[in-house]
Each structure stands twice: as C-alpha cells, then as structure tokens.
Simulated scan of single mutants.
Amino acid sequence: MEPVPETDVALDEYMRDDDPRDDLLQMGRLVRRIVPQCVAMSMTMVEDELTFTLVARDRSASRVPAQRAIAEDCIESSLSLPIVESGRVVAGLSLYAATADAFDGHHEELARALGASVSGVVSNGDLSFSTRRRAREAPQQLADRKDVDVTVGLLAADRNLDLRTARQLLAEIAIRAGVTAAAAARVLRFSRP
C-alpha cells in the first residue's frame, strides 16, 4: 500500500518531527499479509482530527495514479478498529476490501497485529470510504493550524499576551468577522505593517 497524494503532502510538509509514515506503511504491509483483498487503509488521529490513507495499487493498474487505483464503488467490506491507550481511543483504523467476506475471521488477528482493540470493532460501517475524503482534507487542515499557530504567536508578541489569551482573541475576531479562525489568522498575519 502507498499513501494517497494528500497523505504524502501532509506527511512530507507538516509531520517532519513526528512522521508516522513508516508506521503506516508497516501497518499496510501487515494488513495485506493477513487480508490480501484489502485495498485501502486509513488511520484517523483522534486528538488531531487528521486522517491519513494508504491504497493498494493493483499491478494491472500500475500506470494509474494511486488516488484513482481504488474506486469507492469497488469497496465491498470495511472494518474499523480503535487504537486505545490508557483507556482512551487515540486513533481509529479503517480497512477496506474489494470482497464482502475479506475480514471474516480476521478481526482478532488484525487487532493484534495493528495494536488495536478487538472490542469496538465495527464491520461494514464505512462502505462509502469516507476516510478517503477526510484524508484529502489533511493538508489544508494542517496548513490552517499552522496559520493559526503563527498568528497566535504574533498576537501574543505584539500585544504582550499569553498564548491562551491570544488564541481566544483570534477566536473572537473570527466569530465577529463570521470566518474561520484560519481565515482570520491569514488576514491578520498578512495585513501586519
């Protein structure tokens, strides 16, 4: 399996300090060993609200870009597994296969191999492959966060505020303007003298 282009961008551009690429690729290899019919895998980080997606590229589709190699209409089954640390869900894994029975009898083995919990497993809960759409949004989400964080720092420095107060000020400005915090951050940052 390989990352969809947006996951590549998010990992390359924004995740340099804590790059989960190797872990994701290893997980993709493990999944394919256990369930060869698996055509895609997504990991959603709960706290960060970010989704990263890998897709399997069929050898016959080797000339087709990865994002087009797996069509939503080829998904016949899905399996969602929570990753739990210290009693709380920190990530969710969503696996997608091209056959209806691909995950039958593999729940425990997949959970064990992926460090996930077998309790909370959901079968066929995402046949629409919605995590792929969320993965497409990851680069923009990360860029928005970066804009907000930089602007919060600038507000704090310019107005002698602590970061929490500066973040609240940015949120209030965004609400008054009727825009997102990221949009307000960009306007404030680029309109500075």
Score class of each variant (00 low, 15 high):
15 M>I: 00
17 D>M: 11
17 D>T: 14
18 D>L: 10
19 D>R: 06
22 D>H: 09
24 L>S: 06
26 Q>I: 03
28 G>K: 07
30 L>A: 12
30 L>T: 04
31 V>K: 05
32 R>V: 13
33 R>I: 01
33 R>Y: 06
34 I>L: 12
36 P>D: 12
38 C>N: 08
39 V>P: 11
44 T>R: 12
44 T>C: 04
45 M>E: 14
46 V>F: 06
47 E>H: 09
49 E>C: 13
55 V>R: 15
55 V>A: 15
58 D>K: 11
61 A>M: 15
62 S>F: 15
65 P>Y: 05
65 P>R: 13
66 A>L: 10
68 R>V: 11
68 R>E: 15
70 I>W: 05
70 I>N: 07
70 I>T: 12
70 I>L: 14
73 D>P: 08
73 D>C: 08
74 C>A: 12
75 I>T: 04
78 S>A: 05
80 S>P: 04
81 L>Q: 00
82 P>R: 01
83 I>V: 14
83 I>E: 04
84 V>A: 01
84 V>F: 00
88 R>A: 10
90 V>G: 03
90 V>M: 03
91 A>L: 03
92 G>T: 13
92 G>Y: 08
92 G>Q: 12
93 L>T: 00
93 L>G: 00
96 Y>M: 06
101 D>V: 10
103 F>H: 03
105 G>S: 10
107 H>N: 11
108 E>V: 13
110 L>A: 05
111 A>M: 06
111 A>N: 03
111 A>F: 03
112 R>P: 05
114 L>E: 01
114 L>T: 03
116 A>P: 01
117 S>W: 06
122 V>W: 04
123 S>A: 13
123 S>N: 09
124 N>Y: 03
127 L>H: 07
